[in-house]
Computed example of a mutant assay.
Amino acid sequence: MNKTELLQQVLKRLEDDHLQAQQAALTAYETATAKENIAENKYDTLGLEASYLATGQARRAAAIRQTLANWKQLVLRSIDSQLGIQLGALIALSDDEDRHQCLFLGPDGASMKLQQDGQTVQVIGPQAPLGQLLLGKGVGDEITLRVASGVQLLEILSVD
């Protein structure tokens, strides 16, 4: 797997999400400020509701823009055995039933699934419960993740 290509996929998805959020905010703003949506009485709230929606969409766009900026600053490095897993790591895990999963650890705000080489890669951040457990760990380490259905034991198979 290629971390640089994964990073480019994340950036592309975030850019697309940001553009979509900007367009949604603009549409809601135009609806809120349209002449035909001026309230005629206290029960006519379409303009007010559209303004709330525009504000929410603008905040969403700003949050995505910040996430995108954080991901653009991510420097992909090789694993340092002294530091263990850090941001930018590509991690292969196996559970106690020998099911494998691949994770790409990056800045917060971009939880998504990507495809590369016919394999699914889950993007997580360091604030996610699994991300917190992985920071500083190395190949061969085992971690215990508490999930709604109980406890899941995971082994780190590889880190790139």
Rank of each mutant, 00 (worst) to 15 (best):
N2R: 12
L6G: 04
L11F: 02
L14C: 07
L14H: 09
H18V: 05
A24Q: 11
A24R: 13
A25D: 01
L26T: 13
T27I: 08
E30T: 10
T33H: 11
K35N: 13
E36L: 04
N37Q: 13
A39I: 09
N41L: 07
N41D: 15
N41C: 10
K42V: 15
K42F: 11
D44S: 08
D44E: 01
D44N: 08
T45N: 15
G47S: 06
G47L: 03
E49D: 14
S51C: 05
S51D: 14
S51M: 14
Y52D: 12
L53P: 00
A54S: 08
T55Q: 15
T55C: 09
G56N: 13
G56C: 08
A58V: 01
Q66E: 12
Q66S: 08
A69E: 15
A69R: 11
N70G: 05
W71H: 10
Q73S: 15
L74D: 04
S78I: 06
Q82H: 12
L87G: 01
G88D: 03
A92H: 09
L93I: 04
D95R: 00
H100N: 11
H100M: 08
C102I: 14
G106F: 03
P107T: 05
A110L: 01
A110D: 02
S111H: 13
M112P: 02
M112H: 05
K113V: 09
L114G: 01
Q115T: 10
Q116M: 08
Q116D: 07
Q116E: 11
T120C: 06
Q122S: 10
V123S: 03
G125A: 10
P129I: 06
G131S: 09
L133C: 07
L134N: 02
K137D: 04
G138C: 09
G138W: 03
V139Y: 03
D141E: 08
E142V: 11
T144Q: 14
L145W: 00
Q152I: 02
L153V: 14
